[in-house]
Amino acid sequence: MRRAEELKERTVWKSDPHTQVKHLVYRHYLQCWMGKICQTFPEATIVDAFAGPGVYTDGPPGSPVVIARTFLEHSAYQRFNRLNLICLEERPDRVEELQRQFAKLPKAPKLHISVQPPGKFADQQSRLSALAHRGRAETPVLWVVDPFDLKSAPYSLIRQCLAAPRDEVLFTLFTNELHRFCQREGYDKAMTPYFGGTHWQAAVPERLGRREAFATAYQQGFTDQGLFTGSFGIRISNQSARYHLILATHSEAGLKCWAPVTWKLDRYSGQGASTETAGAPSLFDEASWVVDRLDAALRAHAGTEQRWETLSGQAARLNHTDKHLRQSLDNLAAQGLAFRVDPVRARTAWPEGCTVRFYAPEDVADESF
């Protein structure tokens, strides 16, 4: 039986490598998200909008169980407040299986699991949003949206998931399918609502990098509306990305969790992972070289003073961590292009809250008089 038929006909199906990499991204991101959110707010919510049966025939857990276990097994669990996990699945047989899988987990008063009656996400999003926020718009809500096809999660629906100020979305973008079918006659009727506009068309001419261009185009819809966003390609072996995970958030703090995850799983570029690179140690753990894009961004500050918070936010938007920022600053300082001007004394070269002055190469050139 082909995989598409298996997903359509069976209650539970076999796992595959790219799903395992995706769930690894989930776990790493949730480790950071929960560590920040569940200790700061009295309660938070995660909505798994396409929950599935919660298990695969060969044993690995599905995304709802991955989320629950990450919470229960977190090193900071004792300091956590309440987490609501809301799961929606369209098929009744899979809802029943998901309930059986959750019944196997230990009872925990801090984790409230709600498996919803069978239903389609498009029909239930408004109700789920009210349930997730529990009457408080400031409640943090993370929407995990991993549909089976394009039509189940148009851009307008994703934007509804970002209506409240502390909403975040982790969305599976089918970049490989978009790459393969974008030039077929009539496919634009599916593409435009999926992207929320025609800006996807700019990616079509990019034959070699078309998948990544589609991810960039999708993210553009968020940045145009003042949101912060990141992406990560899921590959198998050395093949092109099968799909991308897209993060959309109202806060740079979300990117502060996202960037370390992507660099941990992809030791070369922080842009994608395969079964070969996932979990491998990052080159940044030992190497001293810095990322050119971040280095160039910092050099552009020549002639100005910048607060650490500004520099850290800029690094996060470029998908880099504070560790990368400090390495880049070390590199510039060695060339006389960056100096910490405040505080005068510090235990480390670039402490949080410091102020950095930048210079241009011509400012430090050795001139003869």
Results as ranks from 00 to 15, higher is better:
282 S>A: 12
113 I>E: 02
293 R>M: 05
180 R>A: 13
207 R>H: 14
179 H>L: 10
181 F>L: 15
112 H>R: 01
72 L>Q: 10
14 K>S: 10
231 S>C: 05
109 P>F: 13
298 L>T: 05
125 Q>S: 14
136 R>E: 01
5 E>G: 07
77 Y>N: 06
343 P>N: 15
78 Q>M: 08
19 T>W: 13
319 N>I: 00
283 L>P: 04
71 F>P: 03
240 S>I: 05
366 D>L: 14
292 D>L: 13
122 A>H: 14
166 R>T: 09
269 S>A: 14
131 L>W: 01
130 A>W: 09
231 S>K: 06
292 D>I: 11
299 R>D: 01
118 P>N: 11
109 P>L: 11
155 Y>V: 06
291 V>N: 04
36 K>W: 12
355 T>H: 01
110 K>W: 05
20 Q>N: 05
288 S>E: 08
309 E>Q: 02
219 Q>A: 14
182 C>P: 11
218 Y>D: 07
25 V>E: 05
235 R>A: 08
223 T>K: 08
347 R>M: 14
68 A>V: 00
97 E>P: 03
22 K>T: 04
65 V>W: 00
337 L>I: 08
132 A>S: 06
99 Q>D: 05
7 L>V: 10
212 E>T: 06
308 W>T: 04
129 S>Y: 09
369 F>Y: 04
126 S>N: 12
75 S>N: 09
29 Y>T: 02
65 V>C: 00
172 T>A: 15
228 F>R: 13
152 S>A: 14
334 A>Q: 01
339 F>E: 11
106 P>S: 09
100 R>V: 06
53 P>L: 04
26 Y>V: 07
264 K>V: 03
144 V>M: 08
201 Q>T: 00
217 A>G: 04
40 T>Q: 14
343 P>F: 12
208 L>H: 11
361 P>Q: 09
227 L>G: 05
1 M>R: 07
32 C>M: 07
351 P>W: 07
355 T>Y: 06
270 G>M: 02
368 S>M: 13
193 P>Y: 10
270 G>S: 07
83 L>D: 00
79 R>M: 03
52 G>W: 00
214 F>Y: 04
24 L>I: 02
290 V>P: 04
155 Y>R: 09
141 V>C: 06
171 F>P: 09
124 Q>K: 10
121 F>S: 12
369 F>R: 08
178 L>S: 07
224 D>V: 03
27 R>I: 03
276 E>C: 11
305 E>R: 05
176 N>C: 10
122 A>Q: 12
255 L>F: 10
272 G>H: 12
367 E>Y: 14
250 H>S: 06
18 H>E: 05
200 W>V: 01
63 S>H: 03
292 D>Y: 08
145 V>M: 15
